[in-house]
Measured scan of single mutants.
Amino acid sequence: PDDEWKERLREAEEKNNWKLFEELARKAGVSEEKIEEWKRRWS
């Protein structure tokens, strides 16, 4: 299951679909801290 969400995150990233990325990350149990960090790195 871990690989599956990583794959989906990669797809979201490729499409630059931040909303989807964020949603998937939350569902995968990624901390808000980590998500914010990704946001900063991404923008």
Rank of each mutant, 00 (worst) to 15 (best):
L20S: 06
K6A: 15
S31F: 01
V30S: 01
K34Q: 15
R40L: 13
E36Q: 12
E22A: 08
L20A: 11
D3F: 09
E11N: 03
E36G: 05
E14H: 09
E7Q: 11
S31R: 04
R41H: 13
A28S: 06
A12D: 02
E37H: 03
K19Y: 11
D2S: 12
G29W: 00
R10Q: 11
A25T: 00
W38L: 10
I35R: 00
A25H: 01
V30H: 08
K34V: 14
A25N: 00
R41Y: 13
P1V: 13
E32T: 08
N17Q: 09
F21Y: 04
R8K: 14
K19D: 14
E14T: 07
K34H: 08
K39V: 05
R40S: 13
V30W: 15
K6C: 15
E4A: 08
K27V: 08
L24V: 11
E4V: 11
K34P: 00
E33T: 07
L24F: 11
V30A: 04
S31L: 04
N17A: 05
R40Y: 09
E7D: 12
E14Y: 13
N16D: 09
S43Y: 13
K19F: 11
W18Q: 01
E13Y: 15
E36P: 00
V30P: 00
G29V: 00
S31W: 01
E11L: 05
V30M: 15
E33G: 05
E33V: 08
L20P: 03
I35V: 02
D3N: 10
E33D: 09
V30K: 01
A12Q: 03
R8G: 09
K6D: 13
W5H: 02
I35E: 00
R8T: 10
A28T: 02
K6W: 15
A28I: 06
S43D: 13
L24I: 14
R41S: 14
W42H: 06
P1K: 10
R41K: 14
K19R: 11
R8A: 15
L20N: 07
R40P: 02
N17T: 05
G29L: 02
D2G: 10
A25D: 00
K27N: 11
E7S: 06
W5L: 11
D3I: 07
W42R: 02
E4I: 10
R26C: 10
R40D: 12
L20T: 06
W18I: 06
K34R: 10
A12T: 04
S43L: 13
D2N: 09
L24Q: 05
E36R: 10
N17I: 06
W38H: 09
E7Y: 03
A25L: 14
K39D: 01
P1C: 14
E37M: 05
K15L: 13
W18M: 05
E36L: 12
E37T: 02
E4L: 11
E23F: 10
W38Y: 11
E23I: 07
P1S: 12
K39F: 07
R8F: 15
K15Y: 08
E33H: 06
N17G: 05
E37L: 04
W42Y: 10
K6I: 15
E23S: 07
E13M: 15
K19M: 12
D3A: 11
S43M: 13
K15M: 14
K15F: 07
W42P: 02
L9R: 01
K34D: 12
E37N: 03
N17S: 07
K39Q: 04
E11F: 03
W18T: 01
E32P: 09
N16H: 12
E14S: 11
I35W: 03
R10C: 13
K6H: 13
R40T: 11
W5R: 01
I35Y: 02
D3L: 08
R41I: 14
S43W: 15
A25S: 03
E13I: 15
E22Q: 04
E13S: 14
D2I: 10
R40H: 11
A12F: 10
R8N: 09
D3P: 07
P1F: 14
E13H: 15
E4K: 06
N17L: 06
K15N: 13
K39E: 04
R10F: 08
E14D: 09
L24M: 09
S31H: 04
S43T: 12
K39L: 10
R8D: 08
K15G: 11
L9W: 11
K6M: 15
D3Y: 09
L9S: 02
R41W: 15
K39T: 02
G29R: 00
W42S: 03
K6G: 13
A12W: 10
D2F: 11
R10D: 08
E14M: 13
K39W: 07
E32H: 05
R41M: 14
E7A: 08
W38G: 00
W5V: 04
V30Q: 02
A28V: 06
L9A: 09
W38N: 01
K19L: 12
L24N: 03
E14Q: 10
E14F: 13
E23G: 03
D3H: 08
P1R: 09
K39P: 00
L9T: 02
E22N: 02
I35S: 00
F21M: 04
K6P: 09
R41G: 13
E14K: 11
K15I: 07
F21D: 00
K15R: 11
K19G: 09
D2A: 09
N17V: 04
K39S: 04
W38M: 10
K27W: 13
E7P: 01
E22K: 03
G29E: 01
R40M: 12
L9C: 12
A12M: 08
E32F: 04
N16E: 07
E23Q: 08
E7G: 04
E32N: 08
R41F: 12
A12I: 06
L24D: 04
W5Q: 02
D2V: 09
K39G: 04
S43N: 14
S31T: 09
K27S: 12
E33R: 05
E4Y: 15
E32M: 06
A28K: 04
K6T: 14
K15S: 14
E37Q: 05
E4N: 09
N16Q: 13
R8H: 13
E13R: 15
E7H: 07
L9K: 01
